[in-house]
């Protein structure tokens, strides 16, 4: 009896393993096949690509190295860098204020919150998925080439991201606190300000910090497109073949991004 059972199990196991192997084989085939098909369709040459990586890095380390003259321009670069950091922070912060305002209407303690929530969700999806390029170009056309344009592009993008993140946090936060304040006879807005917002705020701040990090990177893109901030500095050096200066600019960006990443990781630990 027992051996029979074992025999059955053994066979089951065999078929199962075979099926699994079949599945793995086909998955690999499909993924590999579509990779090759895509490369071919896009005219991406894998051999050129593979060779380009060591070549580019060696080019990078030869040409991006600063020399004595480079240092004279450093203060100029640093001041633009500071302005860009300022843009990243202010756009994230102002976006957060707007996002908190909008999300507040989506707290379960507010009247009609289901309808409002749908609208806010729509706005968020809209803002976030419209490419940064479109915002940048559109703003550049009317606000012209200045920091304000960069600020507004980053602001709109941040607003979309923060709205979605804040909405999700609001949803996950249980309604227990709202209930506790409800029984004291408090109304919706009061419960929101005294109970709900203090509870979700640390998570919100964590997202604001993330948004600032992200904005620094995006600021480079926006800068190249709109001719502002550190992105413009890099672009103009790069295009005028001043690679030493372009290199030092990238170095500055790297230092700032890594520093920010570490600072916000520390801050998150303290806040949580």
């Amino acid at each position: 009896m027992k051996s029979l059972e074992n025999g059955l199990n053994y066979q089951d196991l065999q078929t199962q393993l075979r099926q699994k192997r079949h599945k793995q084989f086909w998955t690999l085939l499909v993924v590999g096949g579509s990779y090759l098909a895509l490369s071919w369709l896009l005219h991406f040459s894998n051999t050129i690509g593979i060779w380009a990586i060591p070549k580019s890095f060696s080019w990078l380390f030869i040409n991006f190295v600063p020399h004595a003259q480079t240092m004279q321009t450093l203060p100029d670069i640093l001041s633009k860098l500071l302005a860009t950091i300022g843009l990243a922070i202010s756009s994230a912060f102002i976006a957060a204020i707007f996002a908190i305002g909008l999300v507040s209407f989506c707290a379960p303690v507010m009247p009609h919150y289901l309808g409002v929530k749908r609208v806010v969700r729509l706005i968020a999806s809209f803002l976030r998925n419209i490419p940064l390029v479109a915002w940048s170009m559109l703003l550049l056309f009317t606000f012209k080439q200045n920091d304000l344009t960069g600020f507004l592009a980053l602001f709109l993008m941040s607003l979309g991201f923060l709205l979605r993140a804040f909405l999700e946090i609001m949803e996950d936060e249980s309604s227990q606190i709202a209930e506790a304040l409800q029984v004291t006879g408090a109304g919706g807005l009061v419960i929101l300000c005294r109970g709900v917002l203090p509870t979700v705020m640390p998570q919100f701040v964590s997202w604001i910090l993330y948004m600032i990090e992200n904005n620094i990177r995006d600021a480079t893109l926006v800068g190249i497109l709109t001719g502002t901030g550190i992105g413009f500095v890099f672009d103009s050096y790069f295009k005028s073949l001043r690679y030493d200066l372009a290199g030092i600019t990238v170095l500055c960006i790297i230092v700032v991004v890594i520093a920010l990443e570490n600072i916000s990781a520390q801050l998150r630990r303290v806040i949580a």
Binding site: L181, A186, L189
Partner: peptide, 25 residues
């Protein structure tokens, strides 16, 4: 069901929120 992020005394005072007007609340 306390507001954990706030201080003990703030949570106790929350018992009064029902008596407050909108702004004070």
């Amino acid at each position: 069901n306390l507001v954990e992020r706030l201080t003990v005394i703030e949570n106790v005072l929350h018992g009064r929120l029902g008596q407050k007007n909108l702004w004070q609340g």
